[in-house]
């Protein structure tokens, strides 16, 4: 009988979990819709902005602008220190969403370190921060609470220190990593070289008409554009990551709900078997009692 009660208790607890996971799935679905819309709307702007900056980067290669602006387009400089900026979620329970990003970051770190390149880590999100803190890695800068509610001004504030390091020549390269939204069921890890502006993959699409920058003040124009480019890329990776996080959580919670359902089913069969068994034993006891009285 004790066994029966125990199974019953288990069934109750698993169905409780199932209810929770289902609720979490519904919440994620609702949030995903909003985040997805935001990410979709912004993706066009981000894409065009990157196109424009690539075009300019390509046309500027020859004319070699000076100052900080020139630095941002100079891809020939030797890399001694890389700043890795990456975005993880603040919350767990979203499958392999965070670990995927972390794994990629670790791979990159190993890759760079084997070449003798130093690393600066800039982390958005609690999960990534906790992981690297636990592993006693030096973290240059981190922020918590930004990935669950992306905010343009906060993103700008966060990325400012990275840009400062770059313009001080303390850092020679800035890489931005986030797990982005592809569609409802897949996430796509995006590794984006933020600075210096990557020109290697766009060289071919630049047409013969070279882009001229209005001459009155080239540096002001470039500076404004670069600022926008960096800030917007940071912001976009946050909202893209948020959409991906919700879709990952939705999926994880969906499979958790299904697993719980399976488990309840199994437990119920077990429960019925045990009940049957106890009835049989009781019957045998009664019958054998009657038999002995004869």
């Amino acid at each position: 009988m004790a066994n029966l009660k125990e199974i019953q208790r288990k069934i109750k607890s698993v169905s409780g979990t199932q209810k929770t996971t289902r609720a979490m799935k519904l919440v994620s679905t609702a949030k995903l819709r909003r985040a997805e819309e935001l990410a979709k709307k912004s993706s066009l702007y981000a894409k065009k902005l990157n196109e424009v900056i690539s075009k300019i980067a390509a046309s500027i290669q020859d004319s070699k602008a000076g100052g900080v602006e020139g630095l941002c387009f100079d891809s020939t400089r030797t890399v001694k220190r890389v700043a890795i900026v990456f975005v993880t979620a603040d919350k767990g329970l979203c499958g392999a969403f965070n670990s995927q990003t972390i794994k990629t970051v670790i791979r990159l770190i190993k890759d760079y370190e084997s070449k003798g390149i130093a690393i600066d880590l800039h982390i958005v999100g609690k999960k990534g921060y906790e992981y690297f803190k636990y592993n006693k890695r030096e973290i240059k800068h981190h922020v918590i609470g930004l990935s669950s509610s992306p905010d343009y001004d906060k993103a700008v504030h966060f990325v400012a220190s990275v840009v400062e390091d770059f313009s001080n020549k303390r850092v020679d390269k800035v890489v931005l990593i986030h797990n982005g939204y592809k569609n409802m069921i897949t996430q796509e890890l995006k590794i984006n070289q933020l600075l210096p502006v990557d020109v290697s993959n766009i060289q071919q699409q630049v047409n013969d008409s070279t882009l001229e920058i209005e001459a009155y003040n080239e540096e002001v124009v470039l500076e404004a554009l670069l600022k926008k480019y960096i800030e917007y890329n940071m912001y976009y990776s946050l909202i893209d990551s948020l959409a991906a996080e919700h879709s990952a959580r939705m999926q994880a919670m969906d499979s958790a709900t299904n697993n719980a359902k399976e488990m309840v089913k199994g437990l119920k069969i077990k429960f019925n078997k045990a009940r049957q068994e106890s009835i049989t034993t009781e019957l045998i006891e009664i019958i054998s009692g009657v038999e002995s009285m004869k």
Partner: peptide, 17 residues
């Protein structure tokens, strides 16, 4: 940024704020 300007087809390639 430097004042109003117009663009017609076949304009030269330019980037400005």
């Amino acid at each position: 940024e430097e004042g109003e300007f117009g663009v017609l087809p076949e304009h030269t390639s330019i980037f400005t704020l």
